[in-house]
Design a protein around this nucleic acid. Structure first.
Lengths: 248, 248
DNA sequence: GCCTATTGTCGCAACATGTAACAATTATAA
DNA sequence: TTATAATTGTTACATGTTGCGACAATAGGC
């Protein structure tokens, strides 16, 4: 678990990296969920600053890059074994803007030296994760006050280039989806065909034909029909489906 | 232009980065060409070591990541305005193996200190480029002795994880190709439909149907029929096509 | 029991792709 | 000069996939 001292203590003026992390390199996570027909993204909030940001992470010197991303994901959500993939590296100079972090540190009662390692230029590797909204337990990091789901359609203003990151993650997800049906990762263990279709429609931002969608999904042979779902509503009960694990 | 001193001079024992570059971060280029029905990749060779490697680059502290990749590409090929995209970040600890670089430096008559910045752990951003084989002018960097095209189907043993990089670049290219017809970037200004098909077949490693391929390509409306090509061979002369620039 | 909303499924049209055939063209051989 | 072989551009037809509507089957509301 990251503790405040890991991040806020400078490891010494000669070493620009913080506490055993790779210098100048960060990870930003676009953690996506799906709930009430809405795509959600997990954001950190910094009190007294009005700032929101994507969960981030640093890579330990003795740690693989992807492992660091998984660790950061687990720290924020409590989840393991989740779909998590790189989507882009953000490395423009224009990203180097220490003012938001200064504000955050100040809000935490810290007066960082000008050469504090967090205030330098960072190249950030963007990862996106697809999680079961009902299983994730959001958990803020050492510097943030809240870690909460936000509607993707209605984001608060984000720090630095984090809006671009979300957009690019979404583009990657869309492109990946017609290659592999990874959307399943966003749903609970069992789900109806209607829920799966709504998910796809939300991600792609377009209506899909009901019967073609059903036909296409079933023809993939990655769904197992489990049970009927009792909806309590005035119509035929839909089947529940489960994603066949061995097809992952 | 990179000079030897840029790379071999340590900038001082307190600063782990070399000569104004971002520390611990590199770029590796998978530069692809196409010639004589073969996919080619540009490799650097290090004499006396038997080592081959992908062209690499470092990111200047005042430089955007993508700009650094373009700069490295131009340095190795003389080309500008080329298709060049990130495809993956390689960040495993297991990449950290200083022995090949030690051998290379030794071959150059340099005895690096144990803490030489090139011998540390590097995270590397993989880019792949698609270039016109006939236009590129390969040019070795400060540490290498040769920069030459090699058949992708018959690679020499590569340094570190560079074979994985080539494979992953190829996977990315394949996936990208049925999204956008980016294969054109590998051909000269004008080309026949047969050449275009051979290119696709080589990249995808599978035979394609001739008439469907032609139909599909023409239906994209990105090709302009220019002229007939005189082949000097005993059959009907094929048309030459040009890629419509405005569709790029 | 009738009505309404939703689901599972089927049939048909529209479109795309695989396959083969055919005519056109160009050099070579007879 | 004519036949031949190779390769290309194009078309015709079979096959496969997707879009779209129709229909029956529920399940609760009334």
């Amino acid at each position: 678990m990251t503790v405040l001292s890991d991040i806020t203590n400078s490891p010494g003026s000669v070493d620009p990296s913080g506490a055993g992390y790779l210098p100048g390199l960060a990870i930003d996570l676009v953690i996506l969920g799906f709930h009430h027909s809405q795509l959600k993204v997990l954001l950190l909030e910094y009190e007294n600053t009005g700032l929101f940001a994507l969960p981030a992470g640093f890579i330990q010197k003795k740690e693989d890059l992807n492992a660091a991303a998984h660790r950061a994901l687990t720290e924020r959500t409590g989840l393991q074994g989740i779909f998590l993939e790189q989507f882009y590296v953000f490395g423009d100079r224009s990203r180097h803007d220490p003012s938001p972090l200064k504000a955050i540190l100040k809000g935490k009662g810290i007066s960082p030296s000008k050469r504090h390692w967090l205030l330098g230029r960072f190249v950030s590797v963007g990862f996106y994760a697809l999680v079961d909204f009902t299983k994730a337990v959001p958990n803020p990091d050492a510097l943030s006050d809240r870690c909460e789901w936000h509607d993707l359609a209605n984001l608060p203003p984000l720090m630095l280039d984090h809006e671009t990151m979300v957009q690019k993650a979404l583009d990657t997800l869309r492109a990946a989806m017609d290659r592999k049906p990874i959307g399943f990762n966003l749903l609970p263990e069992t789900f109806t065909m209607g829920e799966l279709q709504t998910l796809h429609e939300t991600i792609l931002n377009q209506k899909l034909n009901r019967s073609s969608f059903q036909r296409r999904m079933l023809s993939l042979n990655i769904l197992e029909r489990v049970d009927k779902k009792w909806t309590g509503r005035a119509h035929k009960a839909p089947y529940l489906y489960r994603f066949l694990q061995d097809k992952k």
